[in-house]
């Protein structure tokens, strides 16, 4: 159960976490040394917008918090040698406002704009959104659609993890204790690329009933490459590989969108809950996939 469903718990008493010890290292090396030293008793703290609520409700009880916010250099967005590189500590509000992301990686800006609410977005980070490993978080689907990778830095140096290999289970990622997610790398789009993220939510700040990210690369009106990622319709973020494959080599018309949308709905594996029954959620995946593809193609042609 998520803390979002635990509002009853306080019964009017102030909510605060169990005791812990806090440290705010100034360098990534110090952060890694501290995280390695304290091991599984420690957690990294980024925006705190998932971790602190969990700690207040005692659903998480780290003995040590290693605050990443004082480390320089982790909050930049830049395009370099073939990649867009986004620092893990970039806040959602800055992702949302970035002219570079809006123009060249619109799905990423779309995604940031629908995470939580403006107050949450002023603190929540894009790295934390991925590292938290919550299939209800919005960025994983987009990063799957765009074929992104994350850079993890640990005691033995850096390694590159494709986002498709990052999620191992409910709230579980392939990051090892002592490893910090430092950057996200997205391949630079060739000409004729477009992307979009669409989310259905019951109200502002709610997690997705379903969310769909779409990426297309066009040559004329023929699809050269496609990516589709799904939010909160399975125990992991889903890369809809069959739907993606169905688009490649095709002319992208309504027919192709509908076929891909049917496949994406099949690849979704939603659970029935407060946000709706299984059939409804599958159908929303179908609808959102079609719309997200349409918007991605419009943007690719713009």
């Amino acid at each position: 159960m998520r803390w979002y469903d635990w509002r009853e718990i306080s019964r009017g008493e102030p909510i605060f976490p169990a005791r812990f010890a806090y440290v705010a290292p100034r360098s990534i090396e110090d952060a890694i040394a501290l995280l390695s030293h304290y091991g599984t008793d420690a957690r990294a703290l980024a925006g705190g917008q998932s971790l602190i609520p969990l700690m207040k409700l005692r659903l998480a009880g780290p003995k040590y918090l290693v605050d990443l916010n004082r480390i320089g250099g982790l909050a930049t967005i830049e395009e370099t040698d073939g990649f867009l590189s986004i620092g893990a500590l970039v806040r959602e509000a800055d992702v949302e406002a970035s002219a570079l992301l809006r123009s060249r990686y619109p799905a990423i800006a779309d995604t940031a704009a629908v995470v939580g609410d403006p107050l949450v977005r002023n603190l929540g980070t894009i790295g934390g959104n991925l590292a938290h490993g919550d299939p209800a978080n919005d960025h994983p689907a987009t990063m799957l659609a765009l074929g992104a990778e994350v850079i993890a830095q640990g005691p033995r140096g850096e390694r590159v993890i494709p986002v498709a290999d990052l999620f191992e289970g409910f709230f579980t990622t392939s990051l090892k204790p002592g490893e910090v997610l430092t950057r996200i790398r997205v391949p630079r789009p060739a000409s004729g690329c477009g992307s979009a993220y669409l989310k259905l939510e019951r109200k502002v700040g709610d997690l997705a009933t379903a969310g769909v990210a779409a990426f297309v690369q066009l040559e004329g009106d023929v699809c050269r490459a496609a990516g589709i990622g799904l939010t909160n319709v399975g125990s992991l973020p889903i890369k809809a590989r069959k739907a993606e494959a169905s688009l490649v080599g095709k002319r992208l018309d309504e027919r192709a969108f509908a076929d891909a949308a049917d496949l994406a709905a099949e690849e979704a594996d939603p659970a029935s809950d407060l946000r709706g029954p299984v059939d409804y959620k599958r159908d929303m995946v179908r609808v959102l996939t079609r719309r997200a593809l349409r918007r991605a193609v419009e943007r690719a042609q713009a």
Partner: peptide, 12 residues
Amino acid sequence: MASTARAEERLT
């Protein structure tokens, strides 16, 4: 641990 900083329960 090489690092100079240490985690504390009370801080100024």
